[in-house]
Design a protein around this nucleic acid. Structure first.
Length: 889
RNA sequence: GGGCGGUUAGCUCAGUUGGUUAGAGCGCCUGCCUUACAAGCAGGAGGCCACUGGUUCGAGUCCAGUACCGCCCACCA
């Protein structure tokens, strides 16, 4: 029964983590008897390590879910399972190569076998890690597998879009990653500035001695030039119109086209046109019907079209070409130049524009209703500012390239007939060509972009395209809680596909949280080496501590700055809770009573104290506060102000429950008293406080709650299944709150006096409190024991003002007089003078305001009245302090 | 180039709808091993709320501009 002196979360956290999942505490019942609350959870990145960002996300999500569950909702998590195709493919390929196996040699089937084995092993590890950091959902309840349920949904979605003409196959210049060997979407390309050069190259004008100078940052692509362009408004080059120039090193004749592509202000105003290797040139090439010459292969090596440079890597080719040009005197000059280089998000290789045939989704028709859904508030994006980014992106959306040249992923459900060339897109694998009946058909080798299947997540996981009970009850889901980084990748696509496929928005609210940064505000990343490992921190400080530190540190939508000190701070809070409980249990044992909790914890009101008609002041106060705090916490979590909820709970528990309630309660502890009403009140208060804290500190509250409620009949199996306290305004006890406030003021003033006068804590003093209100004397008399214990002063009460020169402290409602062992007038004078300053400042400002006609006529009456009241208080205090000061002369 | 955010105590950050002595954690100073907790207790110091103007009876809070920091998107041969 007895608790250890120091809180050791390792002893119970793993137990509860396992238990919650095994008991299925957070699996929806789907019986429809309770309001549904479903939540889409971002996929853990199975290919990477668990990081603080995950932990932060899980903490917020878990708080929401526990809170909703305790409020009686029928909750459902839709935990994502990462299946990032490129990342998985890369990792598996790397693993195979480490074993000396070249993926290309073993073929698709074998490769996928390896991938599955790896996925199972590694994925399981990640899922276990998620459990350890406190995620209460069952991550093993996978509603998704690559080859089962989702596969069907993916195919259904693809076919529907195809049949509606929203998916097409076409030849375009796409972003090609030579490292991954696949096409990537615009979003998967990250740009960074790099130092490079701008080469000015002379292209001889055919049939004259003249040459034109073109500037390029990529000389190696010149082998694919099929034109040069000048701006039609650029008079300098009018004479070139209709002429041709000779492409150096190759000898091809290039027409001179007139096109806006050439900016007269940039470089020489003449630009080479390489339609197969540059997006702008590609467009120009289509406008002018130019030839598209691809000079590189899929590994970005120069191909046979590159003539003598064939086989060279693109960067080596650049060097060689520049050298050859230089030898021929065709380099006019070389400038230093900073350009933006696009790299692959995954493998960091420099992306190469490449002409190829790919599958695309026509996004404009999908974007329109998606924009509308957010505009009309059908989907709420929180915080609000993020809406702008969303609109901006959606309105300028470009078609989405969804095919990937990988093995790991959902295969595109398209077949090609070798006989007639027919393209067959169907739900079932076809046996023959529907057009010519030929049996030589072959499925497209490509797989889908991982975000295509991810975009179906909110409904595919619920059994779509079947009309399941889950879908009826839980779709649209209530909330998506995620980071800004995948707003476009994932959120936007879920919205587009949700509206199109499932006929309704995928979620009602999107809460976007900030990033987790280190103490130097740097984004945590492995390459920077500033990663705080959540598992390590969890081992060291406990899951509750890490979660609390994360949640309390960030305002709505802003970043979290995390340091180990903060996490240590979370642990001190847990330790505080632990020790408060420990003390209660120890004292209870001394009282000879067993742990007890009320049958109806929510209906419990404090019982009258022994030998008294009403509950003690501290009990009335505590239950009033518990009630108010419940109201505030509920409102904070509702509005995603997690940090405010956490902060409030921290202060309430530490500085009200422990510092004052427990301290005051100590006075009523008696050995072998048995289970007195005072004890019942305290145990019920503790029980309620634990429930309030539970979403934020799940493990420690579960452990303590289980101990506290042992033996209670009819209690739920877990605190997570109990109810969350809510506010009942009729239970607020303003009188008790006011009186405890007064008591705290008096004790604080006495402690302050003692400290500043340098009186040792053990010296007991006698004192008189002169109350200006009847209530003061009442409180002082009734709480004399409390004052004695908490300030070590035997205080008696008198009414009215203190006799001239007797008081040493002047409060708003009372004066205090202390019997000091020695004369301390100097210290006392300094003390009083110090107090005078801010009071005078406040009085002046109040006077200024009340002297202002405008203020009196325009400010609301209650504000004017409150200033008047304050001014009177200030003046009264100042007057009394002055009197005492002058008598101390 | 377009857009968004930030600037409050030594550090990291809160501060709901404008309401008057601006808060917390950590750090710092003083005193305490007080029959839960030294991961603790009591007390204390420390702020022209970036700058300039405006709106208002009243501005950390609303508006405009300036400076610095950060992020996102787009483009640049």
């Amino acid at each position: 029964m007895a608790l250890e002196k120091v809180y050791e979360p390792q002893q119970f956290e793993p137990h509860w983590a396992k238990w919650w999942v095994e008991e299925g505490l957070f699996v929806a019942s789907t019986d429809g008897s309770k309001p549904p609350f479903s939540l889409v959870v971002p996929p853990p990145n199975v290919t990477g390590a668990l990081h603080m960002g995950h932990m932060y996300e899980i903490a917020q999500i878990d708080i929401t879910m526990r809170w909703r569950r305790m409020q009686g909702y029928n909750v459902l998590w839709l935990p994502g399972t990462d299946h990032a195709s490129i990342a998985t493919e890369m990792l598996v390929a790397r693993q195979l190569r480490d074993q000396g196996i070249e993926p290309r040699d073993i073929g698709r089937e074998k490769f996928l076998e390896h991938a599955w084995a790896w996925k199972e092993k590694y994925g399981g590890t990640i899922v276990n890690q998620f459990k350890r950091i406190g995620a209460s959902c069952d991550w093993t309840r996978e509603r998704f597998t690559m080859d089962a349920g989702l596969s069907r949904a993916v195919r259904e979605a693809f076919v529907r879009l195809y049949e509606k003409g929203l998916i097409y196959r076409g030849e375009y210049l796409i972003n090609w990653c030579p490292g991954c060997g696949t096409a990537v979407s615009d979003l998967e390309v990250v740009y960074s500035e790099q130092q490079g050069h701008l080469w000015h190259i002379r292209y001889p004008v055919t049939g004259s001695d003249e040459h034109v100078v073109v500037a390029t940052t990529r000389p190696e692509t010149m082998l694919g030039d099929t034109a040069i362009a000048v701006n039609p408004k650029d008079e300098r080059y009018r004479h070139l119109w209709n002429k041709t120039v000779t492409l150096p090193l190759v000898g091809r004749q290039l027409v001179v086209i007139r096109d806006e592509l050439a900016d007269p202000e940039f470089g020489t105003g003449v630009v080479k046109v390489t339609p197969a290797h540059d997006p702008n040139d590609f467009e120009a090439g289509k406008r002018h019907d130019l030839e598209f010459i691809t000079v590189m292969d899929e590994q970005a090596r120069m191909n046979e079209k590159a003539g003598e440079f064939a086989g060279l890597d693109r960067f080596e080719a650049r060097k060689q070409i520049v050298k050859r040009l230089n030898d021929q005197g065709l380099i006019e000059k070389i400038e230093d130049y900073t350009n933006n280089i696009g790299s692959c998000q995954r493998c960091k290789s420099i992306v190469e524009p490449r002409v190829s045939t790919q599958w695309f989704i026509r996004t404009k028709p999908l974007a329109e209703p998606s924009i509308k859904a957010v505009e009309t508030g059908e989907i709420e994006i929180i915080p609000d500012q993020r809406r702008r980014n969303y609109f901006e992106w959606m309105r300028n959306i470009r078609d989405w390239c969804i095919s990937r040249q990988l093995w790991w992923g959902h295969r595109i459900p398209a077949w090609y007939c070798a006989d007639c060339g027919e393209v067959i897109v169907t739900r079932e694998d076809p046996a023959s060509c529907g057009k010519c009946g030929g049996e030589k058909i072959e499925q497209d080798q490509d797989v889908l972009d991982t975000w295509f299947s991810s975009g179906l997540w909110p409904f595919s996981t619920m059994g779509w395209p079947d009309e399941t009970e889950d879908l009826k009850l839980f779709y649209p889901t209530s909330l998506l809680n995620t980071g800004f980084d995948i707003l476009f990748f994932w959120v936007a696509r879920m919205i587009m596909l949700g509206i199109e496929m499932a006929g309704d928005v995928p979620f009602r609210q999107v809460y976007i949280h900030g990033l987790v940064r280190d103490a130097d505000k740097q984004k945590m990343s492995k390459t920077k080496g500033n990663v705080i490992d959540p598992i390590e921190m969890t081992d060291k400080y406990g899951t509750d501590a890490v979660r609390f530190a994360l949640v309390v540190a960030a305002g709505q939508g802003s970043d979290v700055v995390l340091s180990e000190e903060r996490i240590a701070g979370g642990r001190t809070f847990a330790n505080k809770i632990w020790n408060a409980a420990r003390f209660i249990f120890l004292s209870l044992e001394k009282s000879g009573a067993d742990p007890w909790s009320p049958e109806d914890p929510d209906g419990f009101v404090p019982e009258a104290a022994t030998g008294n008609g009403r509950p003690s002041l501290e009990d009335r106060w505590m239950f009033s506060r518990l009630n108010e705090v419940a109201g505030l916490v509920n409102s904070h979590i509702e509005k995603y102000r997690y940090h405010e909820a956490a902060n409030l709970l921290y202060h309430f528990f530490w500085h009200e429950f422990c510092d004052w309630y427990v301290e005051l309660k100590k006075l009523s502890f008696r050995e072998d008293s048995g289970l007195t009403p005072e004890w019942k009140n305290m145990l019920a208060a503790m029980e309620r406080a634990l429930r309030l804290l539970h979403p934020v500190m799940p493990f420690i509250t579960e452990e303590l709650w289980q101990r506290l409620t042992t033996g209670a009949t009819g209690r739920p199996r877990s605190i997570a299944l109990s109810t969350y306290p809510s506010e009942d305004p009729t239970l607020t006890d303003k009188e008790a709150e006011r009186q405890v406030e007064l008591l705290r003021e008096i004790i604080a003033a006495l402690r302050n006096l003692r400290a500043e006068m340098g009186i040792p804590p053990k010296t007991q003093l006698e004192g008189i409190c002169y109350g200006h209100r009847a209530e003061v004397a009442e409180v002082v008399t009734e709480q004399a024991a409390a004052v004695s214990r908490l300030a070590n002063v035997k205080l008696t009460a008198q009414s009215g003002a203190a006799p001239q020169g007797k008081a040493m402290h002047h409060g708003k409602d009372f004066d205090l007089q202390l019997e000091l062992p020695a004369e301390e007038t100097k210290t006392l004078r300094e003390r009083l003078a110090k107090q005078l300053k801010p009071l005078e400042k406040a009085r002046d400002s109040s006077q200024r305001q009340l002297g202002n006609e405008q203020f009196l006529s325009k400010a609301p009456p209650h504000v004017v009245a409150s200033i008047r009241k304050k001014l009177a208080d200030y003046e009264s205090q100042i007057k009394r302090i002055r009197e005492t000061l002058s008598s101390l002369q």
